[in-house]
Amino acid sequence: MRENLLSAVQRQAMPVLPVTGADLKVSRKGRVLLDVDNIEIAGHGTTVIVGPNGAGKSLLLNLLAGLRQPDRGNVRWNGTPPSRSRYCRFGMVLQHAVLLRRSVKANVEYALRAVGHSRNEARRRAEASLGEAGMERLAHASARVLSGGERQRLALVRALATHPDLVFLDEPTSSLDPASVMAIETMVQDASVKGMRAVMVAHDLAQAKRVADEIILMHHGRIVERAATDDFFQRPQSETAEAFIAGRLLI
């Protein structure tokens, strides 16, 4: 069933999951920005990464996405380094998503063309995706004139339209109104129910509670705690986690 959703190119591409990072270190000018011994993203559900500003959440996601190289250590997608051909099974909304200087629909079509769909197929799927997200009204607007909430929704629609196996979302709801936050969370949850693995950076604990199956807490470039959502909030294992939940953890 789900196979039908994938393009020929996607079907040929090697799997992305599990994604692993081993011994990841990044430092700049003697300051350690990231120091993660081991991380594995596998299985199902949604992982939410939380932590104060500058904790290294974006850096970790970008390393695992193959956008940055660590000073030490390595990232593997199903055992081999991230490769160009497998990006068609992977979606990401960057913290500062770059929308193309084209219409809303053309942005989605571009993503679909990149994973190997024909022009007609891309158009059909883009229309369907925008329709599902309630954005058909904006299809012909310039992507760059959208409001903040619309922009983030488009970035998400574009990332999900290709039905990736794994999606990374870096603060996709920052500075949005509650309705837009809700719309984005619903889209992620719907995709997750259909089997997509998601990793999302959130700065809002309420949001983490709503969407996370498990939580990763980062602080000073390290993973301090990783636990199922209920355990994380009810039985934090570290003082750092307790302080963070209580809103007392500063940068």
Partner: peptide, 24 residues
């Protein structure tokens, strides 16, 4: 500079990236 990460995520080769940049 602005598009680099976004275009890498599309799995594009150098020429395809350049084509996109020219149009953008």
């Amino acid at each position: 500079d602005e598009y680099r990460d976004q275009l890498v995520l599309y799995g594009l080769g150098n020429l395809a990236q350049l084509k996109t940049l020219l149009w953008e």
